[in-house]
Write a protein that binds this DNA or RNA. Structure first.
Lengths: 218, 218
DNA sequence: GTGATATTGTGATTATATTCACTACTATCA
DNA sequence: TGATAGTAGTGAATATAATCACAATATCAC
């Protein structure tokens, strides 16, 4: 049998995830330029600013259409908005934070969420001392309320900053309510639910990579 | 024409950075297995646990030699040690943390550093209220002492969690004292110094990637 | 207007990463 | 001991990503 998803992905042009990640990088630089009052930018300028080749930048953008004008380059503000539309941050999305330890607290005061249209609508914790209180203007719930709160706020993305124990079970339970995207800070492998995605942020792995690279020069 | 760099890289076997990143993932799972008392593991078992193909796992390991035994698989503890030796975490390395805001504080209490042989030997801050004090057992210095402290502790890796302003200048100054590896949490592009490496941890980019992916299903 | 210039978007090419598929082998057990 | 089942390591094939290089064309100076 062929699922709905198969059919859709067959029709849909495959997009490189490398490209999608770079869009965010371009976008940040575009906003910096916009802030400086720059109106138009050429591919080789922007590319050099973010450290990629001009050809790659053009190819990345061409994946989604044709946005530049010959001999004038790309309109900074327009391209910023376009990328926002592509990645889907043109409308605010509700996210839930799981775990309010040191990392969770740091994430709560991370301004990048709102800047990019992500609204931390709820916090979940197992610690009864935290449940029921409000942190940085966000209410902290116990896991009993999980389904209700996620549905009520229409949560789209879950940020995992909890303990490693029971993480997979938590993910599965959250996925069952309809959440498909998980940003995982916990140094523990989780399987993505069906039709879902897990992105891992692995500090140790990055550190070990750096260690490997710098050792190589000696 | 053949450049100096070409010659050097020809001698040195090129190693895929994808492979290096996966080594860390394998390693974490190996430690979990070791903790559970597992002595030997087959490529397809370990591969399925971490979500890669068995062929890829074997290829990754084969980059660095031949560690498994036919029909018995890989010795869990030995492979763990081997990976440690490859990435260079068999000896403790001193790292410095730049910036003691919310994120910096969270990183200070992140146990992954010590677990992987990284010792946060010093903190640097511009806020005079913090300079001179001790946080989580680590002394906080002002930028005046930068060169002295880095040399004294033989700092190898810099973790960037400061403000975006003046980041490039900071990196260049730190690189001038011999630090070649930078782990950048600041949402701002930095150019790697000559013979140096910058690894970015970009939370917004990961979020936008998730947003893109989950939107795609609708 | 018009020609000179410079840039985008893209087909063709190259480089890199992953997977396939098989060989040589080793532990196990009859 | 010898047959068997099943695995690691790897050359070959495939898939994916990055780069090259150029045709088409918009802008601008005059």
């Amino acid at each position: 049998m062929r699922t709905e998803r198969d059919k859709r992905e067959q029709k849909m042009k495959p997009v490189s995830l490398h490209t999608v990640e770079r869009l965010s990088v371009y976008r940040r630089m575009l906003e910096e330029l916009s802030h400086e009052g720059v109106e138009y930018v050429h591919s080789h300028q922007l590319a050099s600013l973010v450290g990629v080749t001009a050809a790659q930048l053009r190819r990345d953008l061409a994946t989604f259409g044709s946005f530049g004008s010959i001999a004038r380059g790309y309109n900074v503000r327009e391209m910023d908005r376009t990328i926002g539309r592509i990645v889907g941050t043109d409308v605010t999305q509700a996210v839930a934070l799981f775990g309010l330890g040191d990392l969770g607290r740091a994430l709560l005061s991370y301004r990048g969420f709102e800047e990019r249209g992500f609204n931390v609508a709820a916090i979940f914790e197992t610690d009864p001392d935290k449940v029921g209180h409000v942190f940085n203007g966000r209410r902290c719930y116990g896991l009993d309320d999980l389904e209700t709160v996620i549905r009520h706020h229409d949560i789209r993305i879950a940020i995992l900053a909890s303990r490693a124990e029971g993480l997979q079970e938590l993910v599965d339970r959250v996925a069952a309510v309809g959440v498909r995207a998980f940003l995982n800070f916990v140094p523990k492998r989780v399987n993505a639910p069906a039709d879902g995605f897990v992105e891992n942020i692995d500090i140790s792995a990055k550190l070990e990579k750096l260690s490997f690279l710098s050792r190589r020069l000696d």
